[in-house]
Write a protein that binds this DNA or RNA. Sequence first.
DNA 1: TATTTTTGATTGATCCATCAATCAATAAAA
DNA 2: TTTTATTGATTGATGGATCAATCAAAAATA
Lengths: 200, 200
Amino acid sequence: MPKVGMEPVRRKALVDAALHVIGDQGTLSVTMSDIARQAGVSAALAHHYFGSKEQLLVETVRSLLKQLRDDTVKALMAAATPREKLSAIVRVSFQADQFAPETIAAWLAFYSEAQRSEETRRFLVIYARRLHSNLVANLKQLCVADDAQRIAEGTAAMIDGLYIRRALGSSPVTADASIALTDDYITLNLLARKPQEHAA
Amino acid sequence: MPKVGMEPVRRKALVDAALHVIGDQGTLSVTMSDIARQAGVSAALAHHYFGSKEQLLVETVRSLLKQLRDDTVKALMAAATPREKLSAIVRVSFQADQFAPETIAAWLAFYSEAQRSEETRRFLVIYARRLHSNLVANLKQLCVADDAQRIAEGTAAMIDGLYIRRALGSSPVTADASIALTDDYITLNLLARKPQEHAA
DNA sequence: TATTTTTGATTGATCCATCAATCAATAAAA
DNA sequence: TTTTATTGATTGATGGATCAATCAAAAATA
């Protein structure tokens, strides 16, 4: 078994396992054993590579965030106009991987954890800021800066809100419906504030 | 201390304490000792009155939900027209008590917990349904039923989203700004779909 | 005195983290 | 090539701490 170069493989496997188990149980109170079992290794090995449970969890948020960022970057490059880029941002948030029940549950668990863990909160704030800034950058080309700020706030809130409602499994809102709802919000706002041409 | 009739007093104190501590720590992994200490009694007494930690937590969600419902009912009665009722619903969600940092953190913790606890999920689904149905009932008098459904989904999502973003403390969105943002969403939608008169 | 309220002490279970020991592969030496 | 030494990978066992829950007894009232 012990071939050289296992470290990156194990690290990834453990992070993925953490995401899976957390998504499944909906809480960060999962044990190292739970995670290690899911990854097919011993709990001791998880400690060997990550030092502590907290560190493994931090790496897990980081991976969640990185995946979202990569997807966003790719989607933004594929879109041409500002309006298309806005739709792309929205679409990425409700993509298959992001909208998977376990991914949503994991996000939620981390949001809750952010109250305790400074490092977790940092990551989530980065996500929130990035989403907001991506939205504003493109909205600014379609309306005045002041409106761009407001619309970005509303859009970001709607995305997060649709997430949380999806986590409950209460609202029968599909990914497509979520995209449509959010996109409509942007369209409606741009129409209402259209009078002025694109700002300086 | 031990006067007769302490039970209801202690129950309320413990539920309030649970809410306080959970809001503070942002997690349901608070200990019975934490809660009991906050309430000024021993952990054993908490077990005496609630039987188990889970039961105490369930009662805590219930109280959170009851307060929201009572506030909503009161606000709805004070509002005359459907449009005013819609604004009232929105306003209640961002009222001082509801928008207090600890209350928000507690809601978030329960959302996360809902993944594990069937009873917690039931309560949260009830909240989601009630919000949706209150919105739809009033929207229906201002637009066609189909649009009412959609607008209600969007409004509910935006409320929850503003909550979660507030929990992070990342977006500097005040209660008033949140109300304005959500109310604008409703207004904008009603304007866009105005063409038809109120439906059957 | 009888009843209700309250708690300290205790128990059994769980979990994070550590550590010593094992295993296998590679590198070095003969 | 064969043998030996070294190192990375891995785990079982276990310490130490924490926590939910129980219980028997104390304290205070009726």
